[in-house]
Simulated assay, not measured.
Amino acid sequence: MKRFEKLAELQALVGQQIGLSEWIEVDQRRIDQFADATGDHQWIHVDPVRAAAGPFKTTIAHGFLTLSLLPEMFASAFEVGDTRMGVNYGLNRVRFPAPVPVGSRLRGSFKLLAYEVLDGGAQLTIEVTMEREGSAKPVCVAESLTRRYV
């Protein structure tokens, strides 16, 4: 995990990678819990027998499940010492270039695209590229907007 003592340090790092998360395993239990929480029980996600005969030969994670791993990835990628609060401000773009088969391990790489000074903090535009262990193609690329307050 990278640590920055002050939020203002990030301003000079626009265009650079500012963190790399720990690996997160996406197992069937997590997929099933997400399906229960969202009501999305499509067979490709929750029926291993039917999915074995499907296009991916196994169940795959929901795209929105993959996206929902962002907070956990943020938490292990970097921290800012003088930040008292951070809020999710939204997303500009999200793409899911490749599926996430059950049992995959994912991690996120965080590149700072923009730093905008706010009263009491800053808005960060961060490109997150989620990779799947053993795959050359990312499983999610998202532009995340987060506001950090000191």
Rank of each mutant, 00 (worst) to 15 (best):
H45E: 04
M130D: 04
R50T: 15
P138G: 15
F78N: 11
F74A: 14
K111N: 09
V46E: 07
G121S: 08
G108F: 02
V26M: 07
T66Y: 00
I126E: 04
G90E: 00
M73R: 01
D47G: 11
T58Y: 01
F64M: 12
D27C: 08
D36I: 14
D119I: 10
W23Q: 15
V14I: 14
A114E: 08
V94S: 11
L13W: 01
T83I: 08
G121Q: 00
V102N: 05
E79V: 09
A51N: 03
G63K: 09
V94A: 13
Q17D: 12
A52C: 03
N88W: 01
E79Y: 01
F34K: 04
D47A: 09
Q33S: 08
W43E: 12
G54Q: 01
V87E: 01
S135E: 11
D82H: 08
L10Y: 07
G103W: 04
N92S: 11
R95Y: 04
E72R: 13
R30I: 10
T66P: 06
Q16K: 15
D82E: 04
L106Y: 02
R29T: 15
S104Q: 06
A61P: 00
T59V: 14
P99R: 12
Q28G: 12
A51S: 09
A75L: 13
Y115H: 07
Q11P: 12
V49G: 08
H45V: 10
K111S: 10
V46Y: 04
K137W: 02
H45I: 08
A122P: 00
V46T: 15
N92Y: 01
E127Q: 15
G15R: 07
I126Y: 01
Q33I: 07
P71R: 06
A61F: 00
Y89V: 13
G86W: 01
V14L: 08
V128I: 10
L112N: 02
P71W: 03
P71G: 07
F78S: 14
H41E: 03
I24A: 10
S68D: 05
I18V: 15
V14E: 07
D27E: 06
K137I: 13
R29F: 00
G15H: 08
H45Y: 03
A12N: 14
L69D: 02
V128M: 08
M85E: 07
T83Q: 09
T129H: 04
E25V: 15
L69M: 13
H62P: 05
I18T: 13
